[in-house]
Nucleic acid binder design. Structure first.
Lengths: 115, 115
DNA sequence: ATAAACCCTGACATTAATGTCAGGGTCAAG
DNA sequence: CTTGACCCTGACATTAATGTCAGGGTTTAT
């Protein structure tokens, strides 16, 4: 299929599909006219990419294990767990920071409303 | 005082002090040689700016009420509360999103460790 | 053969505060 | 009068994925 169809099937913009290819997350073969041609498997692959992006994993990190997880069960890919754990730590840090700010904001709001 | 001293006193980089001025958070008078000269009050003003930035408030928002809060008690400045409340909502949304991701991450980690 | 719909590359824009560099004045102490 | 420590402006870079535009080819249907 061509890029427009892949985009329509997955809901991912053409621009993003080209970007994924540049980041080595996705491959295509070129037809004589220069158009990209995708295998039917690409649709699932794009959904997988989107799933990991939704977890806040960067394209660079995804590139490091995507080849494996497309062929095996995720548990079999040793690169995945450390990345998940790193991301989890980052998220926890961010949550903590946001709570700090929230607490400060609530203090300020309270002190305004009291006066 | 000149910009280097203000920077040293507040711990805020010279670059940032110039940026605050450009964003109309800070003023200075120019000496004959073109150097900025700051009033002693600037030190406190810079700390106030830093405080609001630490709450995640943008320079544009700060600019909208800084004049007031420098002259009055914060509670007196009507622009402040809506901005606090808006920011609080943004923070809550972000916290919520992060929890969603965290929950997904924990699921994946668990499913890897179970296998 | 022409219009519409598709595809290509390359480039700039987006956010927000800050870092950093280049090229150039100013001033004080030696 | 020179050196070093200040100061100035203007500009580009940073992050990461995506949007958008220009300028140009291709294909399909009429």
């Amino acid at each position: 299929m061509r890029i427009g169809e892949l985009s329509a099937r997955t809901g991912v913009s053409i621009r993003s599909l080209r970007y994924y290819e540049q980041q080595k997350l996705l491959t295509s073969v070129r037809m004589d006219n220069g158009y990209r041609e995708y295998s039917p498997l690409a649709e699932d692959q794009v959904r997988t990419i989107q799933f990991y992006l939704g977890l806040g994993i960067t394209t660079e990190q995804i590139a490091s294990f995507l080849g494996c997880v497309l062929k095996n069960k995720e548990a079999f890919c040793q690169e995945v767990l450390p990345i998940y754990e790193l991301k989890l730590k980052e998220i926890d840090d961010q949550i903590h920071q946001l709570y700090q700010i929230k607490s400060n904001l609530l203090d300020r709001i309270r002190s305004i409303q009291e006066s």
